[in-house]
């Protein structure tokens, strides 16, 4: 086992189903937190998750997950992974408590502990009242919650959620997203969430990897963190623009009209540094408007570019 800074490191991972290329040279480094895999249906998100879970062997490339290489026996890292698949995968004619405890026992929990823990996670996901009901009588929303409970029962270090809100009504969907955020916050669990619903990703993730046609098209920081580290503004400056220092110039992209710029801020050059620079140079700031670049814009741009290629 090799100790890694990233929980997932992928280098040029490729996979094909017969003649269909499902993944093509995917490389990414995922650190701790909640990450999204976004893409239209058939983008390769589920295939990538299956490779990370060890269900499929990459035809090319290499990578590590939780410090284990993908070529190792996947049983070595599966004990620390929770997986909530997109499709229904529940054993019928059994109740939620037994099913959840069963999956815990399969992960290596002692049975009595698994039963106790099953009650806890079923309470947590909101199935407290129906935990003794046969799972085949559950609604779609309840099944999704139960799948989350079976993924959480052994308290994994890394949680894979494949379309967790699939088939849920708006209110259940909201509750599921709240649960995911809560897990990330309180359990400090690393989560990889795959979805084709932008709002789900935006609501839960700190960074998103956009995939299309088996390729990793782009990655983007989203949510509060995005505003803090990757903020863009539309600015209008007045004064001696030739005196703008080099350090500031690299963050200013000139727009069509004179004096108009697009300002890109990051950790090394934040708002306060910008204002101080302007003050030092005696340049007036006439406009300072946050440029709202939504995930939808990025997604559409990335998918569009990828289609053109």
């Amino acid at each position: 086992m090799v100790m890694q800074a990233h929980i997932i490191e992928l280098n040029n991972i490729s996979y094909s189903y017969g003649s269909t290329q499902a993944l093509s040279h995917v490389s990414m480094n995922v650190s701790q937190g909640v990450f999204g895999l976004l893409g239209p249906n058939g983008a390769g998100k589920t295939t990538l998750m299956k490779i990370l879970m060890g269900f499929l062997k990459a035809s090319a490339g290499h990578g590590t997950i939780l410090g284990h290489t993908l070529s190792e026996d996947p049983r070595l890292f599966r004990q620390h992974i929770g997986y909530m698949p997109e499709s229904d995968c529940l054993i019928p004619y059994t109740d939620a408590v037994n099913l959840t405890a069963y999956t815990g026992a399969l992960a290596g929990m002692p049975w009595h502990e698994a039963i106790k823990r099953a009650h806890e996670v079923l309470y947590y996901v909101g199935l407290e009242d129906s935990r003794y009901r046969m799972v085949n009588t559950y609604s779609t929303g309840m099944k999704q919650r139960l799948k989350l409970a079976t993924a959480l029962v052994h308290d994994p270090k890394l949680l894979f959620l494949d379309e967790p809100t699939s088939g849920m009504d708006p209110s259940s969907r909201g509750e599921m997203l709240t649960l995911i955020k809560d897990i990330a916050k309180k359990a400090q669990m690393n989560i990889i969430l795959s979805s084709h619903i932008l709002a789900d990703i935006e609501a839960t993730c700190q960074q998103v990897y956009i995939m299309n046609r088996g390729e990793l098209v782009t990655e983007k920081t989203v949510g509060e963190k995005a505003l803090a580290i990757d903020a863009r503004y539309r600015v209008r400056l007045q004064g001696d623009l030739d005196s703008i220092p080099d350090v500031m110039q690299s963050h200013l992209i000139p727009a069509e009209h004179a004096g108009h710029f697009q300002l890109k801020l990051d950790h090394s050059f934040d708002k306060n540094t910008f204002f101080k620079c302007l003050q030092d140079q005696g340049i007036q700031l006439r406009e300072f408007i946050p440029k709202t670049e939504t995930l939808a814009n990025t997604f559409e741009a990335a998918i569009g570019e990828n289609h053109e290629h």
Binding site: M53, R78, Q79, Y83, P85, C89, I91, T103, L106, A107
Partner: peptide, 10 residues
């Protein structure tokens, strides 16, 4: 389709 339930475990 219960196999992911089994084989996502070690």
């Amino acid at each position: 389709n219960a196999f992911p339930l089994y084989f996502s475990k070690p």
